[in-house]
Amino acid sequence: MSADAILEVADAVKDFDGLRAVDGASFHVERGSITALIGPNGAGKTTMFDLLSGFARLNTGTIRFAGRSIGGMAPHRIARLGLVRTFQLTRVLAGMSVMDNMLLAAPSQPGEHLPSLILGPRRARAAEARSRADAQALLETFGLRDKARDYAGALSGGQRKLLEIARALMTQPSLVLLDEPMAGVNPTLGRAILDHIAALREQRGTTFLFVEHDMDVVMSRADRVIVMAQGRVISAGTPAQVRADPAVVEAYLGSASPETTA
């Protein structure tokens, strides 16, 4: 396996009620890469994300993130290690303002813990001011600046998607899992998201793993592609390698060819 893998998954298995959603999947994600995870509907991509982020428990197998085993770890601990995710069905905190959604994601805010809040209110306020500036900048990039005071529940579907991604980035992650970040977003905006992801990778070295059905996007934007089908990883490599792999073509037969699946 690559020496510089930020994430390594080996023989991951996950059963639901007799249905094997992930069936011995193994793959790795290189540090600083933008990697796409593709596969037909029901291939187990979202379940894989649930496993990686601690929302589902492995039956067997191992997951290593930045050299640590994180299989079975609680979601909030994994997130604090720098692995954050977004959800396929967006989950903004509807009854809070857009700004509060962002501030909630700020890492290591001492004001979130009662003892440090009571003993050091000034430190909490300072951290808050810094987070606010960061949040403002991110909202600016994602075109949500004017919405900062609105309830997140008042945003459109596409804007919610943007907010969720911005919020994930607010945690200053080293690996971001994006589950269909472009679904429901208009193409112009979608391209802006991708540009932003590419820029972040350059500036901060953040690693991205994203699920996407639009093959044009996958082929043009990803450094590496991992293909899942029926719970297994059937192919992995550069976009060109994956496109040429007969196993991939076969996996998509019956639904559609990888070129045309949207």
Partner: peptide, 25 residues
């Protein structure tokens, strides 16, 4: 009105999403 209270509201809205941001729900 503190960040502590904000975490509680996050949990009220969606505890999974709040946990995904690193909060011990």
């Amino acid at each position: 009105a503190t960040p502590w209270g904000r975490v509680l509201r996050g949990i009220r809205e969606d505890e999974d999403a709040t946990a995904a941001l690193g909060k011990d729900v």
